[in-house]
C-alpha cells in the first residue's frame, strides 16, 4: 500500500491481527521518504512483513514510470536501513523451489542447502552425481516476494490503465467500485502479467475495456474459493484475504479511491488448501 496513506490504511488491514507498532510506523514514515529520494522512485509502497524465527523482514517496494514493470523491492530489519533485493530470475526461482524449506530464519546470509543425487549416462556408464544447491535467505526472500506479487497481488478493476504505449499507470479518474460491485470477485484483478486473458471467448471479451481489463480477474482462479471476501469495520470496508498465501490482505473502501494490499505472514504458501475447503 502507498506509504503516504500508510497510517490510515494499516488499521483497515489489521483484521488478521498483525499491524505495526508506533515506533515502526514512525520509522517507516521517515525512512521511506529518504528511500524515495535516494532511489528516485515515483512512489514508494509498504509491501509488508515476513516473519522469521529470529528476526522479521520489513519489505518496501519502489515504483518507477511503469507501475507494473518498474518495481524494486527492498528489505529492512529496523524499518530504517533498506537493502535492495536481487531480481528474481527464472533460474533463481527454480533453485529456491528446490532448496528452501521451512520457516524463514531472519538472517539474510543463512544458506539453505539441498543435495540431490542425479544419474548421468546409461547402462554401465551410469554415474551418480551429487548436486548441491545452495541458496541464501536473501535470494529466497526476493523470490518469495516476487511469487506473492505474481500470484496474489490484487487491485480493483479500473484502478490502473494501460496506455497505448503499453505502460501501466494509475487511473486518475478511478472513483472506487460501488458497494454492489465491490462484493463480487470479478471486479478485482491480479496485478501481474495476465495469463488467461487471451483465452477468453469473443462474447466474454465484448464488454471488456481494453485499457482497463488488461489483467486477469480473481474469479477465474483455480481452485475456486481460494479467496475470502468480507466486509469489515462495520461493513464499510471490503477486505479480501488470500487463502493460498495466508497473510495477504487487500482492502478497498467502496466509492473512494482507497485500496491497497499488504502481506504480513511467515512467507509460506498454503499447499494444503485443497484439503481445507
Amino acid at each position: 500500500m502507498d506509504s503516504s496513506t500508510l497510517l490510515y490504511s494499516l488499521d483497515l488491514v489489521s483484521g488478521n491481527g498483525l499491524t505495526l507498532s508506533s515506533e515502526q510506523r514512525a520509522a517507516l514514515h521517515t525512512s521511506l521518504i529518504i528511500l524515495k529520494r535516494n532511489y528516485k522512485f515515483h512512489r514508494v509502497l509498504f509491501w509488508g512483513k515476513i516473519m522469521g524465527i529470529k528476526n522479521d523482514y520489513f519489505i518496501a517496494q519502489g515504483v518507477g514510470e511503469d507501475e507494473m514493470k518498474d518495481r524494486k523491492c527492498l528489505y529492512s530489519f529496523n524499518c530504517m536501513d533498506w537493502h535492495l533485493l536481487p531480481h528474481a530470475t527464472e533460474a533463481l526461482i527454480a533453485e529456491v523451489d528446490v532448496a528452501a524449506k521451512g520457516r524463514f530464519i531472519g538472517d539474510p546470509a543463512y544458506t539453505y542447502e539441498h543435495t540431490e543425487i542425479r544419474h548421468r549416462g546409461e547402462g554401465d556408464d551410469a554415474v551418480e552425481e551429487e548436486v548441491m544447491v545452495k541458496v541464501s535467505e536473501e535470494r529466497r526472500l526476493a523470490v518469495t516476494v516476487f511469487t506473492i506479487d505474481k500470484e496474489v497481488a490484487v487491485v480493483p478493476r479500473g484502478a490502473y490503465i494501460k496506455s497505448p504505449h503499453g505502460t501501466v499507470q494509475t487511473n486518475r479518474s478511478f472513483e472506487g467500485l460501488n458497494p454492489t460491485e465491490a462484493a463480487k470477485l470479478n471486479n478485482y484483478l491480479h496485478f501481474t502479467n495476465p495469463k488467461n486473458l487471451k483465452k477468453k471467448s469473443i462474447l466474454e471479451m465484448a464488454d471488456l475495456n481494453p485499457s482497463i481489463d488488461f489483467l486477469d480477474p480473481l474469479s477465474d482462479d483455480i481452485p475456486k474459493g481460494s479467496w475470502s471476501l468480507q466486509f469489515e469495520h462495520g461493513s464499510r470496508v471490503c477486505v479480501i484475504r488470500s487463502l493460498l498465501w495466508f497473510g495477504l490482505t487487500f482492502f478497498h473502501v467502496p466509492e473512494t479511491s482507497q485500496y491497497g494490499y499488504v502481506y504480513m505472514g511467515d512467507g509460506l504458501k498454503n499447499l494444503d488448501l485443497p484439503f481445507m475447503m
Partner: peptide, 12 residues
C-alpha cells in the same frame, strides 16, 4: 499489543 505489532485496530 500495539507495541508488539499485534492488534485489530483501536476502533475495532
Amino acid at each position: 499489543l500495539e507495541q508488539t505489532g499485534v492488534g485489530l485496530g483501536r476502533e475495532e
